[in-house]
Design a protein around this nucleic acid. Structure first.
Lengths: 262, 262
DNA sequence: CGCTTCTTTGACGAGCCTCAAACTGAGTGG
DNA sequence: CCACTCAGTTTGAGGCTCGTCAAAGAAGCG
């Protein structure tokens, strides 16, 4: 369950968070120090742990240092829908901090978090405008990711959804200082990916196989390698094929049928 | 394009908004008066008009008095995804007011709106705690609706999605004082519903026919009547069939296959 | 080394999409 | 008043995508 990551793919705990927020807003030295202080109050959670419950009013704001989590809802008949993934550098219960969590937050791997109450209070008090702006940007980013997810589920094929999700992971992790522009740790089971993308386990597997066969993806030992990120982006964003490729007349979208010809 | 509503299904402009917010938080007389003042600065928009653009920083907060709108995104290849519907009593650019609109807001029918800047300023200033709480609750409600939408798209069949959406409309409109517990105006084309539910026009039509054949829905002249709201709720929420019906062993979910037997 | 969890593959069927065309109703203009 | 048009709805036929059922490999773990 726990990931075995090549050491070079990971980053030191509080730096991940600092890095993320600095990319969103200029932070004063005081603000950065405050942020690093989050590393002092750490807690560990095992894979499967509930990090925040639905309607938890008292939910403590936290940052994730390492590990993956997700927001999810379980339907009465057992079906699960994952709304978003929480990666190193992400926050829990900070976004929309005026109201309670609207869904459960569950650890997908072992997770290390830090208490962010101090940071949130500083931002709310007006003493740390840079932090406040960074947290607001974090909120906007999350909302954007959720909208992307809706588009994936509503208007994309399995192949496109997977390409989109893999790119999202690569980009987000790189921002957090994990992985590079092609490689990143991917400690998810295919069931989890299916519950996020609205697909069955079997179809997730077949879609991944297809990506492999198309020379777009390598996936071993919990590490993913995007072999042709640009090509993946074309697929994910429903854009016409690359200029090098023979032009398809009406901007045909690329799906499984494209690669099935090969 | 414009709806022809039986008069008794509609409500007077600013009262819709007052009614909505009073359901969310106790409002003082001053706050209610402030809210009614929104009715003084009205504007009208034709069906198809862009009410707020993506990334519009200066977007003015507004309330919708009458008509329907939606948040949407258009993909590069022309596919459209609708994120949410905005009904009488709903707000534009109020939710997440710290950051810009993340998607386009488009009028689906003729729409009447009122300027809400005064209300938002009063809430932010701390002078109107009741309003502030109501706006926060409004924000939470919208987020919940968006999550419901994700579940629909990711984990429900066409039949379930449609049942869920119809119930959402009925409940929201009733809160706004439009329609009753069975009837409500539904001024959407099947194409629009398809773009929201991630379905093709043809399949939307077939799903509606199925609901009609199952005695669950009547839909004429832009007015929908839910003939068995409880039954629809069971279908939409993926719950086992009603107690009266013969029990299905493993909480089987009801879809088209259920009614196909009839 | 057996257990469990996860991945992989095959076979089959159902849900949903695409193409195509007929039908309806509301304008619009001769 | 009657074509004619245009947008929307409805229906049929056929096929691709994806889900379900089933079972056989891997891989981690006690």
């Amino acid at each position: 369950m726990t990931t075995r990551l090549p050491p070079r793919l990971s980053a030191r705990p509080p730096e991940t968070v600092v890095r993320r927020l600095r990319a969103l807003s200029a932070l004063s030295d005081v603000e950065q120090a405050l942020l690093r202080g989050v590393g002092d109050r750490r807690s560990s959670h095992a894979a499967g742990d509930l990090l925040a419950d639905v309607g938890a009013l008292e939910a403590r704001p936290r940052f994730i240092f390492s590990g993956w989590a997700c927001r999810q809802r379980i339907l009465p008949d057992g079906r699960r829908q994952i709304f978003s993934f929480l990666l190193p550098g992400d926050s829990i219960s900070i976004v929309g901090r005026s109201h309670r969590e609207l869904c459960a937050v569950v650890a997908l791997t072992n997770v290390e978090t830090g208490d962010a109450r101090g940071v949130v209070e500083a931002a709310d008090s007006g003493r740390a405008p840079g932090l406040a702006q960074a947290l607001a940007a974090l909120e906007a980013q999350e909302q954007t990711l959720l909208l992307d997810h809706v588009v994936r589920l509503g208007r994309q094929t399995a192949y496109e959804r997977m390409a989109h999700l893999l790119l999202e992971f690569q980009r987000r992790l790189q921002l957090a200082g994990v992985g590079d522009d092609r490689r990143f740790p991917l400690p998810l089971t295919q069931e989890v990916m299916g519950d996020a993308l609205g697909l069955s386990i079997v179809h997730v597997n077949r879609t991944l196989q297809q990506l492999r066969r198309d020379g777009l993806l390598e996936l071993r030992y919990g590490v993913a390698i995007l072999l042709q990120p640009e090509r993946l982006a074309e697929i994910a964003d429903a854009r016409p094929a690359a200029p090098g490729a023979p032009a398809v007349a009406p901007a045909g979208r690329d799906g499984l049928e494209d690669s099935a010809r090969a």
